[in-house]
Amino acid sequence: MTLQQLAYFVALADVRSFTRAADQEGVAQPTLSRQLKALEDELGAPLVNRGRGELTLTPAGEAVLPLARRMLSDMDSARTAVAELVGLRRGRVRVGATPSLCIGVVADVLRVFHEQYPDIHLELSENGSQPLARDLARGQLDVAVLVVPREGLDPSLEITPLMRERLSVASPRSGRPPSSRGSMSLTELSRRSLVMFRKGYDLREVTLQAYADAGVTPKFAVEGGEMDAVLRMVEAGTGMAVVPDLVFAGRPRLRRTVLTPPLYRTVALARRADLAPTQATQAFCDTMLSFISEVSATGGLSADVQVLHRWRDGGAGLARD
C-alpha cells in the first residue's frame, strides 16, 4: 500500500469519476485504475462499485475513506513540520471560521498574524461550525474558530473556549426604534419580519431554537442570505436580524437592541486532539488568544462579550477567567 494509491482513492471518492479523478491527480486514467486495483488487492476487498451509473463506494470503501484521509493529512503535516525545522519554508496554516466570526475577530487576527509572520502562507475557509468540525476531523483544516453547538462537537477535537458572545437584534438606524426600552423579548420580535440566514448558518439554528424555546413562530421577510447580504438588507429596512454583538462595530447604519432574556453563543478555537500542531499552527493559536486578551483588556470588546480564556504574558499558558 502506498500513499499515492490512497490519494487516488480519495480523489475518486470525492469526484465519483475515474476520468475526473485522473485529471485532478494529473495522471492517465489507466494508471489510476491500475493503482486502485493494486490497493484493493492489497486490502483484499473492492473499494468501489464499477457498475453502470454513478460510481459508489463499497462498505469496505466507506470504512477505508476516513482512514485514508487521515493518513494523507498526517503525512502532509509531517512534511510541513519537517520543512519548517530544516528551513525549507516557514509553513502554512489552514484556518476555518464561520462567516460572522470572519467579519468580527478573525479578520483582525489574520492581519496581526500576517504582520508578525509574513512568510507563513494563510488559507482561509468560511463555513458553518459543523462543516468546519468535519473538515478538521478529516485533516483538511489545521485550526478553526467556530461556535460550539448545544450538543457539542466531535470528541476527537481539542476545544479551547474563547468567548461567550451576546446576540442582539439588528434594525436600521434610519427607522423607528423597535422598542422604546432598548430591549425586546422574542415574543415581541416574533411580530416583526426577519431577514434570515441560509440553512447551515449557526446563527440561523441558534435563532430558530430560541424561537422554539420561547414557543413562538418566526416571520420571515427574506431567507437564505450570507452575513454581508443580511446586514445590508437590514440597513435597507427589509427586516430585522439576530446577529452577534461584534458585527455592530463599524456599522453606524445599524441599531442594536438587546434581547430579554439574553441569548448567547460560545466561540471556541478547535483543532485535532490526536495531532500535535505545527509551529505555524501553534503560532496562529497563540496570536488568536493574545489578540482577544489584549482587545478585552483595552476595552475593545462589548461589555456583553465575556472572554473565557486570557493569555498570560510571555505565552506561559492559558487560564480560565
Rank of each mutant, 00 (worst) to 15 (best):
A137V: 14
R265H: 10
T187Q: 10
V93K: 11
L12P: 10
E235T: 03
R69N: 13
P262F: 11
S168H: 07
D135P: 02
Q282E: 14
E62Q: 13
L3I: 03
M1V: 08
R16A: 05
R232N: 06
Y264A: 05
M288K: 08
R166V: 10
A21M: 01
S190P: 06
N127R: 10
I292D: 06
A7L: 07
S185V: 04
M71Q: 14
Q24D: 00
L3G: 07
L146C: 05
E62P: 13
V106N: 08
M1W: 01
L259D: 12
A11W: 11
F220Q: 04
A97N: 06
R271I: 08
M240R: 00
R50G: 13
R52N: 07
P30W: 01
S180F: 05
L39H: 03
A249G: 09
G61F: 03
P161C: 08
M233R: 10
L47R: 12
L43V: 04
R265P: 06
R191W: 06
G91S: 10
Q5R: 14
E115Q: 15
S296M: 08
E115M: 11
I103C: 00
M184V: 06
G96W: 10
L231S: 03
V242F: 00
Q5H: 11
V82Y: 09
Q4D: 05
E226Y: 00
R320Q: 07
L167Q: 14
L3H: 06
R265Y: 05
G239D: 02
G200V: 12
T98Y: 10
P261V: 07
P177A: 15
A283M: 12
L57T: 14
L308W: 03
S190A: 11
G300D: 07
V148W: 05
T298E: 15
P131D: 15
Y211M: 14
P155D: 14
T238M: 06
V48S: 06
L141F: 06
L162C: 10
T281S: 11
D321L: 09
Q209P: 01
T98N: 08
D321V: 14
V109I: 15
T56Q: 15
A229N: 01
Y8V: 02
P99R: 07
F9P: 09
A22W: 03
T80Q: 13
A21E: 00
S180G: 05
E205H: 09
L88Y: 01
R271T: 14
E40Y: 05
A45H: 08
L208N: 06
Y117C: 08
A38G: 04
A268H: 12
A283L: 13
G152K: 10
T187I: 03
L124P: 08
L162V: 15
T217I: 03
H121C: 02
V267Q: 10
D76K: 15
S125I: 12
R181H: 03
A11K: 12
G215Y: 01
L124N: 03
R181E: 13
L189C: 00
I103Q: 08
G237S: 03
V143T: 11
L186F: 02
T2Y: 08
Q29C: 00
P172Q: 04
Q35V: 01
L157G: 05
R176Y: 00
D286C: 11
V64Q: 11
P252I: 07
V243P: 13
R79W: 07
P155W: 13
G215V: 04
S33L: 01
I103W: 02
P244N: 09
Q35M: 03
N49I: 06
T260V: 15
A221H: 04
D142F: 14
A38T: 02
E25H: 00
R320D: 08
D202M: 13
